[in-house]
Structures are given as C-alpha cells and as structure tokens.
Design a binder for these strands. Structure first.
Lengths: 152, 152
DNA sequence: CGAATTTCCATTGACACCCATAAAATCCCA
DNA sequence: TGGGATTTTATGGGTGTCAATGGAAATTCG
C-alpha cells in the first residue's frame, strides 16, 4: 500500500521502503524479485514466495496453456534483487531501462505486490487512471464493493 | 457515526476520536488507512481490514477492469497511519494538503468508514447537502427505508 | 591486477515513544 | 440524585531511534 519515492544513487542503489521490507521479512530470500511489467513502463515486484507459488503453478498439469505461457514469461524475466545491509537493492541496467528510471524510483504498494516506476511516469499514469475513473462516472462506492465478492 | 473536531498540533498530529479508535481496536494494524477522496477535498479513512479486502479484490481475476483501476488508484494513494501511544496519527503533508487541513480536522463517521475534513469545508459541504435535499423536496422518510434491503 | 560489486561507517532528518498537563466524561456513594 | 472522586481524552513538548542517503574501504571475480 501507498507510494514512496526514493533516490537512486550513482551506483544504482535504492532503498526499498522500510514498510515493504518488513512485509517481506519472514520470507526465504532476503530481497525482492522484480520483472518488467507487461502492461507498463514499470517493474512488478514481490517477495520470493509469490514467485515460488507461480513456479509451482507452472508445474501443475491442470493449468490452462495460456496461463503457463504467462508464468514462463514472468519467471524467465524475473531477477532476484538481494537487500544490502541497509535494505537497499541495486537496480540492474536492464530493469532500470525498461522503466526509464534514472535518479529516483517510486515504490507503489498494491497489497501483496508492488510496482516500481519512474516518478513522473507514475504521476502521469495515476492522472490517467483518475481521469478514466471520473469519465466512467465511477463514484466513491462503499469501499466494500471493491472487495472480492464471494460467489452466491 | 457523528463528527468530532480535533486540533492538529505543530508536528501534524491529531487525535483520532476515541470512539473511532475502539471501533478499529480488533484489527491487524493499530492505526488507520487514509487516502484522498476522489469526490471531495477530504480524506477517506478506514481500518486496514477494508484495504486488505480491496487488495484481495485486485488480485481476483473476475474483477472487471475498471474496478481494478479504481482499486489500484486507491491502494497506491493510501497511507497507513499508525496510532501513537496516545491514539494520535500524523497527517502527512500530502494528505493534509488535499483536504486543506491546517490547524484542525473534522472526523466524520459514516459507519464502517469515516472522512476527515477541514472543519469549515465540511460545514459548507453539509450545508450544500442539506440545501440539495430540500430543493429536491425530500422529506424524512421512515428511517428504515434508508437501510440496505436484502436482495430478493 | 583492475573493475565492479558489496560491506562498512557516518550524517541528517524524520518519526515514534515517553512524560506531563488540562479538560471532559464517567463512576460512585452518601 | 447531586457532586466529588476517578478515569479517560485530548493536547503539548522533549528526546531517542531508525530510515534514507552518500561515500570510503574491502572483497570478489574475471
């Protein structure tokens, strides 16, 4: 949840917001896993647990073919980014380039995952979302309506 | 339910009305979650539980795309505001600015959620609501008719 | 042995906790 | 049931701690 903007230093290091770090603290790998978003010029990221779940799903035979393709794609392009003692990661050139990140990065928490954006691009994305939401005449609903609804 | 006006001190702290606090007491996070309202110059707030439900909804595949956009928007702009030992939160600059809150804040209970307004703006909002209701010739119905009706 | 990467230290500034006081609501008992 | 006693709130301020950031030292690897 929420978004934090942190600086990328000359060596390509960024602090992962402490909130996110503690959320991942109990996982098997002390760091994050990131891969280029398929939808945006941004990075998708999570803890290793989510990735292991995906990889487990890949092995499951019942999985539809499209889902398998998607999972393969994601796994193949994912990078493990370990924390340094201060809780920073280094953004590999490839990932930074995909998201056009140079001097600072916006960490956008989405619940169990988060995204990493170049701050200006994220602002634009946010504005677009807001605009679209307005245009579609969506009002602030009772928040509950956004929750996943149990099928009746 | 009901509205309370509390002061914002020099450090940006405000007491969350005790009533609201006790209502959230049994949740996983000792504090509130707030985000800028899409409709007003005010903040929307709830307990963490509601947000977790939204985040769960975001991951649910069955969710329509527009709802996903809305959920993303809300999650990205939400901030976790923990209680200090006295039951206060600090209003981050960003949120305070959106609601034009400077020296005091009105907490408006709405049932499972509440809003936070700059008191004068809330008074105006309230007056406008009243005015509109009158103009539309609405009378106080039996309160029961306002309750949510079970789907037939 | 040189380049890159990772650990180690140091600084600053924000934030969380501690305590202290005043006002208000609640309790309690004669 | 009135009013004093007690317990909660709300509010202010000081201060220690941790997160974010930068740079140097050290280690790794080709």
């Amino acid at each position: 949840m929420s978004t934090y903007v942190n600086k990328v230093d000359r060596k390509g290091r960024v602090s992962v917001p402490a909130t996110f770090r503690t959320a991942l603290a109990d996982q098997n790998f002390d760091g994050i896993v990131a891969f280029p978003s398929l939808d945006y010029d941004a990075l998708e990221a999570t803890g290793i647990d989510t990735m292991e779940a995906i990889s487990a799903g890949l092995n499951a035979l019942e999985q539809p073919a499209e889902q398998q393709g998607l999972a393969t794609l994601i796994l193949a392009r994912s990078l493990r980014l370990p924390f340094d003692p201060e809780g920073r990661i280094v953004l590999p050139e490839k990932l930074a380039a995909h998201a056009h990140i140079t001097e600072s990065a916006a960490f956008v928490g989405l619940g169990s995952t988060f995204q990493i954006w170049e701050p200006d691009r994220f602002a634009a994305h946010e504005a677009a979302l807001l605009e679209r939401t307005r245009r579609e005449g969506m009002r602030m609903p009772s928040l509950g309506s956004l929750a996943s609804r149990p099928r009746s």
